[in-house]
Write a protein that binds this DNA or RNA. Structure first.
Length: 277
DNA sequence: AAAACAGGCAACCGCTGGCCC
DNA sequence: TGGGCCAGCGGTTGCCTGTTT
């Protein structure tokens, strides 16, 4: 085929492609198709579902919005803590961070970081990736979040200890217990006192955080009255976080509990004036 | 009441790496 | 081995909505 003819054909196809916000009809088409068939081969999905969208666009819409287990609404204090911690470890590896927050998308976490966290950094004239900012996060952001967690829930915070029940179900989707280091970690004690708990082991050992002499006293996880675990942390070869109990994709108490948490859960600028230049 | 502004978020863009031929 | 295709990722853009003036 002559190049000019081929080009015009490609262009005419491109002209037909829709862009911009998705309509309800498009959402329905995509959802029905993916549920009846499967994900993957997104260009094929776009064609077969009768959508005038690129495969890329379909994939993004599905993963960030239509997928049944997507959770919406404000991030809970636990989730925010987890993001702060994981970002300090991995930087802008949004998809990797998202693996540890079931139902949250990399896009959502990225947006959270850019709009909330970086805003705080800007207000303070601190580089959001600097040690100084880590210090501010550790000394004020984290305790404030923990305070919020305690205020906004009648549940009990705890620290995991020597309990590897259901580990496989608590790991990120691609992980299994087999891949986790056998390094000892502490049990879920099930005790009803937040003050008896300890927070996030590697926060305590991470030089970024330990530089600032603050002892953190809470946990990523909490118990309801029956001692049901909903989130926690497993140090490993590569530290593993886990959130949820038997089925993280269908049950998430974190969101239910913190749905009405106020917008800004981090900290006041006034709290951390000493971190200014 | 309306214009201007700011923040939040959905969607797009460009790049990279893996797979297949 | 190299080229094409595709999925996935992180960065960026632009629209929508709420707030301020």
């Amino acid at each position: 085929m002559e190049n000019s003819v081929k080009k015009s054909l490609i262009e005419s196809e491109e002209v037909e492609l829709r862009r911009g916000p998705w309509t309800l009809e498009e959402d329905t088409l995509l959802t029905n198709y993916v549920l009846q068939n499967s994900e993957g081969r997104w260009n094929l999905v776009a064609k077969c579902a009768g959508l005038k969208r690129t495969g890329k666009s379909c994939r993004l819409r599905w993963l960030n919005y239509l997928k049944p287990d997507i959770r919406r609404g404000n991030l809970s204090p636990q989730e925010q803590l987890l993001i702060l911690e994981l970002h300090s470890k991995w930087g802008n590896r949004w998809s990797k961070i998202a693996q540890y927050l079931p139902g949250r998308t990399d896009n959502e976490i990225k947006n959270y970081w850019r709009t909330r966290v970086q805003k705080k950094a800007r207000q303070l004239n601190i580089e959001s990736n600097s040690d100084k900012f880590f210090g501010a996060v550790h000394s004020f952001g984290v305790p404030r979040l923990i305070e919020k967690m305690e205020q906004n829930s009648s549940t009990t915070y705890c620290y995991p200890q020597n309990n590897n029940n259901n580990i496989n179900s608590l790991l990120p989707p691609s992980q299994s217990y087999d891949s986790v280091s056998t390094q000892t970690y502490t049990d879920f004690s099930g005790q009803n006192s937040a003050s008896s708990s300890t927070f996030m082991p590697d926060l305590m050992t991470d030089p970024h955080f330990m530089d600032h002499n603050t002892i953190i006293d809470a946990s990523m996880c909490y118990h309801e009255g029956n001692g049901q675990e909903l989130g926690g942390y497993i140090p490993g070869v590569e530290e593993q976080y886990y959130i949820g109990n038997s089925d993280i994709s269908t049950e998430c108490h974190v969101e239910e509990t913190y749905e009405d948490v106020t917008q800004d859960l981090m900290w006041n600028v006034d709290d951390i004036w000493q971190f200014r230049e």
